[in-house]
Nucleic acid binder design. Structure first.
Lengths: 237, 237
DNA sequence: AAGTGGTCTAGACCACCGA
DNA sequence: CGGTGGTCTAGACCACTTC
């Protein structure tokens, strides 16, 4: 089989996701019962449940006790969708823009904030000033394990979307991101770049982005102008 | 045993949370190994893992492969599930508290920010100063359609959880909430209540809470201290 | 009553970390 | 190397939904 080293439950997750992507499973459809899946894929029911549980946590599936497991109806709500800056701006009806501030390769990620990427080898540091309707809106610093994306350092990040490049040309499936949102005041440098007063508070957003194998593909630290940006989200009990 | 009907893994979750609340387990501390917990509480390791897994999902614990399971270091994260203030604090090992600032009934919700509740009739306005370990953390203003919850205006909100009352006594199933998160500076009034300097930025959180019928059961506006609070979420592509 | 997900067990072996 | 979490099995019984 296609085993290699990928855990069985992750393989099953991928199979289910693929079926949904290909339209073989549509929102509202029932999955086969857990016992049946177990037999079909020759794994134990516990393993099937582990795969399903994670997909439920990711809002892909919904369990109904005594009834069955279903493909989630209302996909991920708007506020729970991971968007690139460009996509985010477009949805808000603003024109996205970029200005490269810094593009470096760090060969020794030691005392960095990138603790999670420390083992990843060299890092590409990309610091961009982000514009909305030609006005500064955010400063975005991305860190990528460059070994996984050979040649990416030569791309034109001024006009290309980072996510677009990763998805289209490196065949990465971006799945999810964890975000930590803080408030703060801008440093003098930041207030100058963002063209705001030093009394204007900012969002500080730390993001860790994962692909389909739960591998970290990016760590980003963004500073958003508090006077021009807000965050909408939806949470469940 | 103390079983009754509560699943074993939920009992273990509660035991761990209690230990964190009481300070017997502090952030950074190691938990006993899973095999030891299994023997100690006379359950299988799978059951122990289920309890720990859920707490990891809620950011209470952190697993380190080959090393151990630790109490999370977090500074009061918001978490990705919809929680009441009390639940949020308890999960982080802090003692929640409340001080009523205002309790009113508005009979004519006309030019109010509660556009969504305008048709709901009379509104109960509840403004509470929220404490974490006896220190001010947030100001929370809740608006509830009082007609749906007769008698709720006489409850002791100083010591009772609003969500607990709604769920247990009015049989409401709280399902989801939409949130809009903004940054701002505190008003003089707010900075005094929260006991922060006027230069400390704050989160402003507008929340609309829904029940199982997608009926609005609460609109809340909260102001959180930016120096003591942050928000963690997970988003999907 | 039949079928579904929910909980639980007693093992086993693998992968990673730290001394 | 020993001890930890990570994955996996083949069963069992319970609780809920549906008919």
């Amino acid at each position: 089989m296609s085993s290699k080293k990928i855990p069985l439950y992750k393989q099953l997750k991928q199979i289910i996701i693929k079926k949904i992507e290909r339209g073989e499973l549509k929102p509202g459809d029932v999955l086969p019962p857990e016992r049946e899946l177990a037999e079909l894929f020759e794994m134990s029911r516990v393993t099937v449940r582990q795969a399903i549980s994670e997909l439920v946590n990711e809002y892909v599936l919904v369990r109904r006790h005594g009834s069955g497991t279903y493909v989630a109806e209302n996909k991920i709500p708007h506020g729970k969708k991971l968007k690139s800056f460009s996509e985010d701006m477009s949805l808000r009806g603003m024109m996205p823009g970029s200005k490269i501030c810094e593009k470096n390769i760090i060969t020794n990620p030691s005392a960095n904030m990138a603790a999670e990427l420390r083992s990843a080898g060299n890092l590409l540091i990309l610091k961009r000033l982000r514009l909305a309707d030609l006005e500064p809106l955010a400063i975005e610093t991305s860190m990528l394990p460059i070994n996984r994306f050979p040649g990416i350092e030569d791309r034109d990040f001024q006009n290309e979307s980072l996510y677009q490049i990763l998805e289209d040309e490196y065949n990465i499936k971006i799945i999810k991101a964890q975000q930590k949102i803080e408030v703060g005041m801008p440093t003098p440098q930041e207030s100058e770049l963002l063209q705001i007063n030093y009394t204007t508070p900012v969002f500080r957003l730390r993001q860790v982005t994962f692909d389909q194998n739960d591998t970290i593909i990016e760590i980003a630290h963004s500073v958003y102008r508090g006077d021009r940006y807000n965050i909408e989200t939806e949470i469940y009990r």
